[in-house]
Structures are given as C-alpha cells and as structure tokens.
C-alpha cells in the first residue's frame, strides 16, 4: 500500500450496518465525522472528541469502540455498526430499545446511541449479564440527564427478556 498523501482524500471501503460502502476521506478525518458528515448517519453523536464521554460509541468488528478515537482510514476493510442498525424496522424497536423506552432510560437522548451500542455487544456476548456487568460497561459512558438508574434497569429488563426468549419453555 503506498503512502497516502495528507493533502488528498482517499477511498475507505468498509462494511457499514451490513452493507458495503465506499467513502472518501482525508487521512485525518475521524470515523465520527465520516459517519455523520460524509455518509449522513447522524445517529452517532459527538460529545468530547477525546474518548471520555462515550456518546460516539459504535461497534467496530463486533466490539464497542469510540468513533472519535478512530481515524476513518483505520476501519478500511472492517465492519462498523451504528445505532441505525439496531432495529430492523425503524417503526419497531429492538428489545433493548423498547426497554429503554419502557423504563425511561433516556431524557435528552444524546448519549443514548453510544450506550445502546455498548450494551448491545454485552447482551449479545453475555446473555447472563447482571447488574455489575451492565454497570461496568456503562461506566464508559457519561449521561447528564438520567442519573443512570433507569438505564441500568432498562438493560436488566432487556437481558431478562432476551433470556426468556432464548428459553421459551423454562
């Protein structure tokens, strides 16, 4: 791969929410800016651009990651998932999203997409996740509205629901 010149845009091919996309980005462009301003998926929010607040959290190759600490060029050939992929039908919420609505796990909603992306990984990988696991994953996110309690409750409810669905006869 040749050295990519700073002054030009370069192609970035990757999988975004299950589809192959080709975007163009300067070397210095952050993944958060690529998603929001080049591709137009504004569900991923930017809160601090130094990796602390967690609002920009997306999934890269199946792991939760800060889009603001990732250069667009670093996801070349990778698999990126954003909040827009969480429910198949926008009119129908996923169990995790529905639990957030039911338990009032959000107020202004700005930090919410990032939190959903972290918890989505946790609940997928660890169907038995309990309160402490949820708190541990949530500790990488700042929420200024809710005081967190209803977010934890929503996540616990979603985990419980998921377990019931997986073992319908139990």
């Amino acid at each position: 791969m040749p050295r990519m010149n700073a002054a030009r845009k370069h192609p970035v091919d990757f999988t975004l929410n299950g589809r192959t996309v080709r975007a163009e980005a300067e070397n210095r462009m952050l993944l958060s800016d690529l998603l929001r301003h080049e591709i137009g998926l504004t569900g991923t929010h930017v809160g601090c651009e130094h990796g602390v607040c967690g609002a920009c959290t997306v999934q890269i190759d199946g792991r939760p990651a800060r889009a603001c600490l990732t250069l667009a060029q670093q996801v070349r050939g990778g698999d990126v998932r954003t909040v827009e992929a969480l429910s198949r039908d926008p009119a129908e919420l996923s169990p995790l999203q529905a639990a957030f609505r039911r338990h009032h796990g959000l107020q202004c909603g700005f930090c919410t997409p990032g939190i959903l992306m972290s918890l989505d990984v946790l609940l997928r990988e660890r169907p038995d996740a309990g309160r402490e696991d949820i708190r541990e994953h949530l500790s990488g996110h700042l929420c200024r509205c809710t005081g967190y309690a209803t977010i934890v409750e929503a996540a616990l409810a979603a985990a419980e629901e998921q377990r019931k669905e997986e073992k319908p006869n139990v």
Binding site: R36, L41, T42, G43, T44, H45, V46, T82, V83, E84, L86, S87, P90, A91, L93, Q97, F100, R101, R102, H104, L106, G109, F110, T112, P113, L116
Partner: peptide, 21 residues
C-alpha cells in the same frame, strides 16, 4: 400517569434531529 414518551422512538433509533444533524 407514567406513560411512555412520544420522543423516545426517534431518539432510540438514531433519528433525533439535534443541531449538528
């Protein structure tokens, strides 16, 4: 009554419209 919020479906699916959006 504690009804579900009408705001939430959009916010939970990344369809909020904040200033930078």
């Amino acid at each position: 009554r504690t009804v579900e919020r009408v705001e939430d479906a959009g916010l939970l699916t990344g369809r909020g419209r904040y200033i930078d959006d």
